[in-house]
Design a protein around this nucleic acid. Structure first.
Lengths: 242, 242
DNA sequence: CGACGCTTTGACACAACTCAACAACCGTGG
DNA sequence: CCACGGTTGTTGAGTTGTGTCAAAGCGTCG
């Protein structure tokens, strides 16, 4: 949050959770993240099929990655938050496999895909850290896949919030008790693979069981242990220092 | 299939679909893939939580990546086939986020995670190709996520077989009309997020509608266009040469 | 030849969806 | 400051896709 040091971007903070970075590496990292710009809520950052050679590093705000379907539905795949990279995979794949939009007004810096690759060769340690971040994002997708297919509505929702809380707290955006959370019921529905009305019913149950409340853009965790138990949540794959 | 040239591994063949490789690069690629060994059907290659520093390159046979759940269920995430890397992500993440087992007897070479990273720095082109392969695998997981959550049982099954056929044909293991496919109904169930009995019903429908038959370990495609239409399948994210 | 793994079939149950209508909230402009 | 329109949330009734359970058939391999 406090970022008096210009080299201390959200991304730098996250990577440092993986391995310590040298001043040189931090300097390079800062240099490739050019002029941040604001993306308005609802605006699309990248779209599926585009062959993007730019990677966005999210500095603030919430975004979501998703795929639209011919039948009008959509599946939200991920919610990149501050410190996350958007389109890192697309930059390598040449053509993006899904789209990203801003959920709230957001601040992003963009990075040339070139620079990322150069970084891997010229600053191997930093490169490794970036690859780690990318792997972590994939692990999240796998976890999400398992979650939406193998847990029932209430467990699934609980698990989703546990994983989200853990990611947010890693970048200082959540406490054990609550965090800002601008997700509407219908956005949650698209992410969790439920109908909006059913999300409502589930949130009601979570509240009645004194586990979690979602109100006015904030999530309040009343019983962390209870939620973890309900969700069968194993943290740890998100945050690992060697 | 025919591999008289010792440098022409399944992996090399796949990477060449991304960009041409020099003799030096092919040589190095062959060198790091040490003595292939056989993994018996049913045996586990890696397990979740293990901190693996080895990557397996599959030369022949079928494997599957999955996560077990506390309640006894499991979700199959991917089916690595010849030319695919197993545990590439785990090698970076330090601890594996899911497990891999052999579906049939399989032949794997193993590679030091070290060597992969070295390769990225010393043979940038080859490194890029490997990163491409890794991204492609992630795109597959995203597609699978969308598939299991946003399509109904029959569309989902059709889509699964379309994607599988495309991958197999890329490494010469499928024609437009048929391919070897050692998936049992209960394995399919674990992958598609259906019960085994429902998989049965769906396969029956596909057969009745003269679209696809799965019999005796082979899949027969009767109506490719019909299947693609039913599935809403957009190929292309699997195979792209620049 | 028996046993085990896989497939096939049927009856029944339920989690989650759809549809529909209404209520609360929120930013915007008059 | 209030009126308004759009978005988001709330509630209920009825429907359905898919799961569960149970039992029998069929290969094939030792």
């Amino acid at each position: 949050m406090i970022s008096s040091n210009p080299f201390d971007s959200a991304l730098a903070r996250k990577l440092k959770a993986f391995l310590p970075l040298s001043p040189d590496e931090l300097k390079w990292l800062a240099e490739i993240q050019v002029t941040p710009r604001v993306v308005e809520r609802g605006k699309q950052l990248t779209h599926e099929g585009q062959n993007g050679h730019r990677v966005f590093v999210l500095q603030a705000g919430w975004t979501y990655g998703y795929k639209d379907l011919p039948n009008g539905g959509r599946q939200i795949v991920s919610f990149p938050i501050a410190g996350d990279c958007i389109g890192l995979r697309s930059a390598l794949l040449r053509t993006a496999d899904h789209s990203f939009s801003a959920l709230t007004d957001a601040v992003v810096s963009s990075v040339e895909a070139e620079d990322i690759l150069k970084c891997v060769t010229q600053f191997p340690r930093l490169g490794t850290a970036i690859l780690w971040a990318a792997s972590r994002e994939e692990a999240l997708v796998v976890e999400h896949l398992v979650n939406v297919r193998r847990r029932n509505a209430i467990e699934r929702t609980a698990h989703f919030f546990m994983a989200l809380a853990e990611r947010l707290s890693l970048v200082g955006l959540a406490t054990e008790a609550e965090f800002k959370c601008p997700l509407t019921q219908s956005v949650l529905a698209d992410a969790l693979g439920l109908s909006a009305t059913h999300v409502k019913r589930v949130l009601q149950q979570l509240q009645e069981q004194n586990l979690l409340t979602l109100r006015k853009g904030r999530a309040h965790i009343h019983d962390l242990a209870g939620l973890r138990k309900l969700a069968g949540f194993q943290g740890g794959y998100l945050n690992q220092r060697d």
